[in-house]
């Protein structure tokens, strides 16, 4: 089993149009960096210098990672990660 990562519409260009991709368990920031190898450009859109961008919200199983351990949040097998631009509404999700 892997980690499910939900990709918002504006970033789906980078994921070949996929709404959902698979990531590896571990620290959230490492998961993002790992995904970037497969989908180049993804990491810089959602993070900068190893930090999640201010207007990008990331949820792990519905919980905002800012209230977990932010970039360092441990993601386990079977977890669901959602990337949601703060402007949300129809544009993002």
């Amino acid at each position: 089993m892997a980690v499910k990562v939900r990709i918002p519409t504006p970033l789906q260009r980078l994921t070949e149009g996929k709404e959902e991709v698979e990531g590896k368990p571990g620290k959230l920031i490492d998961l993002i960096m790992e995904l970037d190898k497969q989908y180049p450009g993804l990491a810089e859109r959602v993070s900068e210098n190893g930090k999640i961008r201010r207007f990008v919200n990331i949820y792990v199983n519905e919980e905002d990672v800012r209230f977990l351990n932010a970039e360092e949040t441990e993601i386990k097998d079977g977890d669901e990660v959602s990337i949601v631009p703060a402007i949300a509404g129809g544009r993002g999700i």
Partner: peptide, 10 residues
């Protein structure tokens, strides 16, 4: 327009 296409900032 109101949102940055790149980083979603205002």
């Amino acid at each position: 327009i109101y949102v940055c296409e790149f980083c979603f900032g205002p």
